[in-house]
Write a protein that binds this DNA or RNA. Structure first.
Lengths: 220, 220
DNA sequence: ATATAATTTTAGACAAACCTAAAAAATTGT
DNA sequence: ACAATTTTTTAGGTTTGTCTAAAATTATAT
């Protein structure tokens, strides 16, 4: 597979990730920053390799073979993101561009050993799930801490309230996007929640809990 | 710089590393596994970019600019090799192919952080020196332990005697290619040498010392 | 010294991945 | 329903890096 083919496959995967229908030529062109005519050329090529289902004027979708290729690229991308953040101290918003390059490195042994080195992570620093070798991944759900049961564990992936005051609070309490938290206890009378962080456990008010999104890994 | 341009630059660097003269078109073609005519095309292109000095039929040599490009690629290659061996537990003879891909990843921040993560290594797992950001590197010398003064430090990069018995001895004493040793003491009357290893320090006979090559980093 | 051999360059072609401009098909609005 | 608009494809061209075959240059050997 060429680098360009891999990028198209990945693009088609992401465009059909949620609506699951066939993807329009123009949509691919826009995402890939190329012209629709170039997309048509490539889609024909991918179709000949049985990586996509394609009929003229009818849009395109990934074949099962293509879907597995996409997931293997996404697996590599997300493992590299974990590496960059956990081992090289990149911040979670810097890693995407570099991972876009690293995802194309071809070596099964490399990815296996990287996975082991990182401790077999289940999600990347943005909270997106990492498929296993066979393309299987647990579809994670993004929920507010206030909506989750005690015992839930997940990666902090977003905020509702992005005011300076709130972000300052998070900083002060060493809460950052990409951190993994576990919900230890919930006080009935005020809705405050105790969560475990890397630096111990802290209690957050209900207001805070309704402003922090976790990407759930395991729900106990 | 394209991937192909980088590969040519690196190839020319390695071909002129020792004889320092200009490099023949055929030699490049052989190393790059392409045809001489392709080399001529590329060399013209590199010449227009002032990366090489080139006159028709007279061979080619790197310009100062080209030399720095080569050294930056070599820096990346060797840092990745250290990563693969030290962090991912690849054996020293498996890493070259993967590093050939990784060396083309473009991100200064990545290389800086990787360098720091690895503890600013001076040599790769084969004992070859790693240039710094500015292309400066200490030209290391390969010598037998028996020829080195007390205080020398280096990476074990080869053996004189490759008999099964000798390799078995090395294995038993936890000496492997790629390990860093320091010469702590030399007994005058029998020429035996005490060296520090990762698992402590051991004493080796003069015979052993005349069979192990170290690539010297710092000579005290 | 010069014929022969080896090396290097040129000329022209090809595949991959892109482009523009124009034609074909599908969609939309009334 | 069908004209106008949008989307998609086709046709033909460009660039990068490769190739083959032939021509030009340099090296070698007697």
């Amino acid at each position: 597979m060429t680098l360009s083919e891999e990028d198209y496959i990945k693009s088609i995967y992401h465009l059909s990730e949620f609506n699951s229908k066939s993807v329009a030529t123009n949509a691919i062109a826009e995402q890939m920053k190329t012209k629709p005519s170039s997309v048509t050329d490539m889609v024909k090529k991918l179709s000949e390799k049985s990586l996509v289902n394609y009929k003229k004027y009818q849009g395109v979708s990934l074949s099962e073979k293509g879907r597995l290729v996409a997931l293997s690229i996404i697996r590599k991308h997300r493992l590299w993101e974990v590496f960059l953040v956990d081992k090289l101290n990149f911040s979670w918003d810097e890693v995407h561009v570099v991972a876009e390059q690293l995802e194309h490195i071809k070596s099964d042994a490399l990815i296996d050993k990287l996975d082991a080195h990182l401790g077999y992570p289940k999600v990347d620093p943005h909270g997106d799930p990492i498929p296993n070798k066979d393309g299987v991944f647990t579809k994670s759900v993004k929920k507010l801490i206030s909506e989750l049961p005690v015992g839930s564990q997940g990666v902090c992936v977003g905020v509702n309230d992005s005011s300076a005051a709130f972000l300052k609070f998070l900083d002060k309490n060493k809460i950052a996007l990409g951190d993994t938290f576990k919900i230890l206890e919930r006080e009935e009378f005020d809705g405050s929640v105790t969560i475990s962080t890397r630096s111990g456990s802290i209690n957050i008010s209900k207001q805070i809990a309704t402003n922090l999104f976790l990407e759930i890994v395991d729900e106990e």
